[in-house]
């Protein structure tokens, strides 16, 4: 074993954790997502300084500062845009994007569609708890229509947003679902997602025990998907449309060309450009 390999082998999840104490509620699923993320990075042996964790606003979006990677905690809903700019400008970096169901599917919904179709090499992790937690309990796009809240008494009456189906329709090439109660399974999904070339989408069911205590029962409902991932979008669409939201694992993988260029070499100096103006 050479020195580099030895150094890689020596990495543990602890190497990717910062010293800051998370401000999440006790029992929040996001602790496990943090743990799964650091485990996945350790498993891949990535140098912490070569990894950037980008996020928007919400409980989930607190994650960057809890890692010992570079972090970018931007504005609400725009994490995919910031991450896209970063990855296109710096293709050498590994870019993870952390979001939640409000940040990612509501205010950031448009960017979700276009990140899927643009297929830039990002790993997009959405911690879905079917509620706005940071603003203390409002319905999100994935909240059940009859869920009662002060902002929407009696429920919204709206059908839920189906992020995996949307991702497939918009052109994502890697679609997976994890459950925060299974951090090792999530770590495995995240490692595969990071390895996938192109945009990868990992939805992680991450209970909000404060505003949705009934989600503690999710651990009884989740199960590994009964069949392996498909690369056929029609078959994937059928599976995603008909599953109950609790099948875990990689559900769809396809190889699509990525819009992202590799490292680009200059063929002209800036001052050469002036020739087209000259008369």
């Amino acid at each position: 074993m050479n020195d580099v390999a030895a150094a890689l082998a020596a990495r543990t999840a602890q190497d990717y954790k910062s010293s800051y104490k998370p401000i999440w509620c006790p029992g929040c699923g996001d602790y496990s997502v943090l743990s799964a993320t650091t485990k996945a990075l350790a498993k891949l042996g990535l140098s912490p300084e070569e990894v950037v964790v980008v996020s928007g606003i919400g409980c989930s979006s607190r994650i960057p500062a809890y890692t010992r990677c570079y972090g970018f905690h931007g504005v609400h809903g725009r994490s995919l845009a910031a991450a896209t700019g970063l990855k296109v400008a710096r293709p050498d970096l590994t870019v993870l994007v952390a979001s939640g169901d409000g940040d990612g599917y509501s205010i950031g919904g448009n960017h979700f569609l276009h990140a899927c179709r643009r297929n830039v090499d990002l790993t997009y992790v959405v911690m879905d708890n079917h509620v706005y937690g940071m603003t203390k309990g409002q319905p999100s796009p994935t909240t059940e229509p009859d869920w009662d809240s002060r902002l929407a008494p009696g429920g919204t009456g709206l059908r839920v947003f189906h992020p995996l189906v949307i991702a497939l329709a918009a052109g994502a090439g890697f679609i997976a679902r994890g459950f925060s109660g299974d951090p090792n399974g999530c770590a495995e999904l995240l490692a595969q997602a990071i390895d996938h070339r192109g945009f990868s989408f990992v939805e992680i069911l991450s209970p909000c025990v404060t505003f949705r205590p009934e989600q503690r029962e999710w651990k009884e409902r989740v199960r590994p998907a009964p069949v392996a991932a498909t690369s056929d979008p029609a078959r994937a669409a059928r599976r995603l449309m008909t599953d109950d939201g609790f099948n875990l694992g990689v559900l769809y993988v396809a190889d699509r060309p990525t819009a992202q260029a590799g490292a680009r070499a200059a063929t002209a100096a800036p001052d050469d450009l002036v020739r087209e103006f000259e008369r």
Binding site: F72, G74, A81, A82, T84, G85, L86, V88, R90
Partner: peptide, 19 residues
Amino acid sequence: AEDELASINMIVGASYGGV
């Protein structure tokens, strides 16, 4: 970009990356 919200956040992300 898909809109100007994306434009500005993309360039903030790229510049954060040193470009």
